[in-house]
Design a protein around this nucleic acid. Structure first.
Lengths: 148, 148
DNA sequence: GTAATTGCAAATACTTTGCCACGTA
DNA sequence: TACGTGGCAAAGTATTTGCAATTAC
């Protein structure tokens, strides 16, 4: 291997957009920056609020919605299932793996950074059920040390 | 061990309701039967429609909603995350484990019956992050043999 | 200048609640 | 009979779309 691993930054996103012939706007930079800053799954509302911190005016909710849709399509953002009433989104480095641990008490979300326990189970399942291109969504729920 | 494993049937549900001092109605029987018949996660609408096949008149959507809420509270039904715009529910035998495989093409949902690959990862995570009472939600997504 | 992007507002979809009539125990 | 349950209708919340004004390139 030994290839150079370029870091995954806001610039990675803007570069990807440019490659698609899309435009880089003040609003889009704000949204992307908000996602990187937080480092945890966010609702569209949270993204909207946080984006304004960077680029002045708060973007419209519909704009955030469409931007996230776009980033999802490009696999630069993915949805996280937190079993809540609305969707959460998070930056998605295609080379990384994202599993979460959620506290049922305070709601805090921790990104788990141990090696994913699914790895080859995925291969077995693909074989056994005749599926291909497998991916998965894995979330743990529990009660954190600070909660009763 | 060697204890007798009673089967998990519609009667298991009605018995549980009775124990809670709740009433067994024609509508409730229809809903429970619909869940057992389908054997896969269903939307509230699907449950509503299917329930009418058993007990004549189609129950009200709100009634289905409240019944599912009730069964969820009693841990006899659980929600499944299929990454769609509405919730799916499925019968939940407390002694069984439910992981799913979803086709990104046709949407079919397969219940995976291999031993759950998470088992002790859960214990490690609990220890490492100081969480307790861990549970998890695991769904696989892929393309089935019949889809392009 | 041209076409992509944005904000605004309205439409849609799904979920949830209130209330009174009804049916089970 | 008494109280849990069901149907109806409306409210609540999140998501999605249409369109004209704006802005990046």
């Amino acid at each position: 291997m030994n290839r150079i691993e370029s870091p995954f930054t806001p610039e990675t996103i803007t570069a990807a957009l440019r490659e698609e012939g899309l435009r880089i706007t003040r609003t889009r930079r704000g949204i992307v920056q908000a996602l990187f800053d937080s480092g945890r799954p966010m609702t569209l509302q949270e993204i909207q609020t946080a984006a304004s911190a960077h680029e002045g005016a708060q973007p419209d909710y519909a704009t955030v919605f469409r931007m996230i849709l776009l980033l999802e399509k490009l696999h630069l953002v993915h949805r996280v299932n937190l079993q809540r009433s609305c969707s959460y989104y998070e930056i998605s480095d295609p080379r990384k793996h994202y599993d979460h641990l959620v506290c049922r008490g305070c709601g805090q979300v921790v990104l788990i950074d141990i090696p994913c326990p699914i790895g080859d189970a995925e291969k077995k399942i693909a074989q056994q059920y005749g599926f291909r291109n497998l991916s998965h969504s894995l979330e743990f729920f529990g009660v954190c040390g600070a909660c009763p």
